[in-house]
């Protein structure tokens, strides 16, 4: 899948009208996505269909209708061949406690098709890569949650996959460990040319590491595309006013004044979100409008659109 199309790198995976039903529950509803090289964030609340989509991409579950293509292969009919080229780390934090980390990673590499000697070498290499080189002979039961998540990552990349599917890889980690894990995932993708699909319900961590985003909500596709296009780079301004009683109606007066100047404005209570202009200009106009209305500012800050905004406007 190294060929590139005129519009950019070829997709490492795609689905067409992929639908998955469990009885009357629609887990995936005619989902059309394209996953490109790099790190793709698969976001959505719990129950949005992230794990179902991952299972469909791995060929572990036959879709009710629609189709998928991963690395040029059909997951349903070519699942075993596909899964030698795809790494996977499940969400569940349960690993064989008595097994040494290096044995665990080596075994999974062998099961994914590597010869024994190569699997042994790569198991050590991968554990060094994820920062567990010195800990590789420890049994998994003695490791912390953060270390176990790293071991899961190591086993997923040990067989040199072209695509790695990580289901909630930061689950159970503290903020520092989460940041380190995300940095590691980014490095694996950028330095070793491994495409990564990162499933998470934490939008800020997806924003921090992902190039592309697939957003699901209750089985429906909310958004799919490059992160920069979906949330944009334009920085708006957020103005939070104090709702004073004297003079009355100052918030309304500020809103009217700003709208009169042609600024795009969204209001939520006493909070105004301004857009459609240069940051400095928006700040100046907000300051002038507040001064003219005799209002008082509690907070004035520049801001970017976030994935949370995307969910709010499209879900």
């Amino acid at each position: 899948m190294s060929a590139e199309t005129a519009s950019g790198p070829a997709a490492v995976a795609s689905t067409t009208a992929l639908t998955q039903r469990f009885g009357s529950t629609v887990a995936l509803d005619a989902v059309d996505i394209q996953l490109h090289p790099g790190v793709t964030g698969l976001v959505g609340a719990n129950g949005a269909g992230k794990t179902t989509l991952i299972n469909a991409l791995l060929g572990l579950r036959a879709p009710t209708s629609g189709s998928a293509n991963v690395l040029g292969l059909d997951p349903r009919s070519q699942g075993p061949a596909l899964r030698t080229r795809v790494g996977f780390a499940p969400e569940r934090d349960v690993l064989p406690d008595e097994m040494r980390a290096v044995d665990f990673v080596r075994h999974l590499a062998q099961v994914r098709g590597l010869p024994r000697s190569e699997a042994r070498t790569r198991a050590s290499d991968c554990l060094w890569l994820v920062g567990l080189g010195e800990e590789r002979t420890r049994t998994l039961g003695t490791m912390s949650t953060g270390q176990r998540q790293r071991v899961k990552l190591a086993q997923a990349i040990a067989s040199d996959p072209q695509l790695v599917l990580l289901d909630e890889p930061t689950s159970g980690l503290d903020p520092t460990q989460r940041s380190e894990m995300l940095t590691l995932i980014g490095e694996i993708s950028s330095e070793h040319s491994v495409s990564v699909v990162l499933s998470s319900h934490l939008l800020n961590e997806v924003e921090s590491v992902c190039d592309h985003v697939v957003a699901l909500d209750a089985g429906r596709l909310v958004a799919c595309g490059p992160l920069s296009e979906l949330i944009g780079d334009d920085e708006g301004v957020l103005v939070e006013l104090v709702d004073v009683t004297e003079p009355a109606g100052t918030v309304d007066a500020v809103e009217r004044a700003l709208r009169a100047t042609g600024i795009a404005l969204e209001r939520s209570g006493t909070t105004l979100r301004l857009g459609g202009g240069e940051r400095d200009e928006l700040c100046d106009r907000a300051r002038d409008a507040v001064a003219d209305a005799g209002a008082r500012i509690r907070r004035l800050e520049t801001r970017r659109r976030t994935l949370a905004d995307l969910f709010e406007t499209t879900a």
Binding site: T84, P115, D125, W128, S159
Partner: peptide, 21 residues
């Protein structure tokens, strides 16, 4: 020792997986 690197050797597929398990 090159640490993590691409692998271009043979892959044993289903037979290798069965043998390993």
């Amino acid at each position: 020792d090159q640490r993590y690197r691409p692998y271009h050797g043979p892959r044993h597929g289903l037979a290798g997986a069965v043998r390993a398990v």
